[in-house]
């Protein structure tokens, strides 16, 4: 099976000149193929930055990033990315959005639309193929976003707080759906979140990160049996681990850091460069 990740000595600097800081510092980590890894940490700890580097959107300043022995250089279809707010193309229907990756690979129209329909059925959106993305609810949009990435059969699925913007109930349904899909389309998953329940429910392994500079302060395996159900969240074992994670996250002195994203620093669009 493919999708083995090797990170060694990884440092990423964000910002320019005197504003520059190390978002990720000297990070080492290996991820097994097919493993579901959650990166847990407070806002601004560099977990999204790490994800952006894995996707190839951010260039490391030091260290190396490899997938299956090959250095990560730029974005690739092999490393699919799901953002917190969906990035569906508003000018394409749901079906065409999902088929986009296959179109880029030169797959014929009939073939790629059929493949899109198939994967839309997998995420439970059979009847919505003809809709525009902005006609769907937030949960549905994220399902389309996941389908669009999975249609490429990536070796690595990167998720940046994909359910962070959804309401609690929808989020729980999406977590169950994601695990269900993952049993059918097995890939390595790196899932970034600051929600402890989410991380414990989903992951095989949790990496806890601490901010400025971003480094891994805890790395542990979870052996809750699969398939997992929501009842898991009320078991004593779950609560015990949750307490452990809470203690780790509270370890920090409560500094509020600006949110980072997989493309680097948040961009400021407030002032147009140029008046019309």
């Amino acid at each position: 099976m493919e999708g083995r990740i090797a990170i060694s000595g990884l440092s990423i600097v964000l910002g320019e000149r005197d504003q520059a800081f190390e978002a990720v510092k000297a990070l080492d980590c290996d991820i097994e193929p097919g493993q579901f890894v959650c990166i847990l940490g407070p806002s601004g700890c560099g977990k999204s930055t790490l994800l952006g580097a894995l996707a190839g959107h951010l260039v490391p300043n030091q260290g190396s990033l490899q997938m299956d022995g090959q250095a990560v250089v730029g974005p690739s279809q092999q490393r699919g990315m799901v953002f917190q707010q969906h990035t569906l193309f508003p000018w394409r229907t749901v079906r065409e959005n999902v088929a986009f990756g296959l179109k880029m690979r030169g797959v014929s129209k009939a073939e790629r639309l059929a493949a899109a329909d198939e994967i839309l059925a997998l995420v439970g959106l059979e009847g919505f193929a003809e809709r525009w993305p902005n006609q769907l609810s937030g949960g549905m949009q994220q399902r389309v976003e996941i389908a669009r990435v999975l249609v490429n059969r990536p070796r690595l699925l990167l998720m940046d707080e994909p359910f962070g913007a959804l309401d609690a109930l929808t989020r729980m349904k999406m977590q169950a759906l994601l695990l269900d899909i993952w049993t059918r389309i097995r890939t390595t998953v790196v899932f970034v979140t600051h929600d402890i329940d989410e991380a414990l429910f989903l992951a095989d392994r949790i990496l806890v990160m601490s901010p400025r500079p971003g480094r891994i302060i805890e790395d542990f395996q979870l052996d809750f049996p699969r398939p997992r159900h929501t009842e898991l969240m009320t078991t004593p074992e779950f609560t015990l681990l949750k307490r452990h994670c809470l203690a780790l996250l509270h370890h920090e002195d409560g500094r509020q850091l600006p949110r980072l994203n997989p493309l680097g620093l948040p961009t400021d669009h407030s002032t147009p460069r140029f008046a019309i």
């Binding site: 990035t87 986009f100 880029m104 690979r105 990435v149």
Partner: peptide
């Protein structure tokens, strides 16, 4: 960024 991750040149 998403388009690039989906293989767009």
């Amino acid at each position: 960024a998403s388009a690039r991750s989906l293989g767009a040149g």
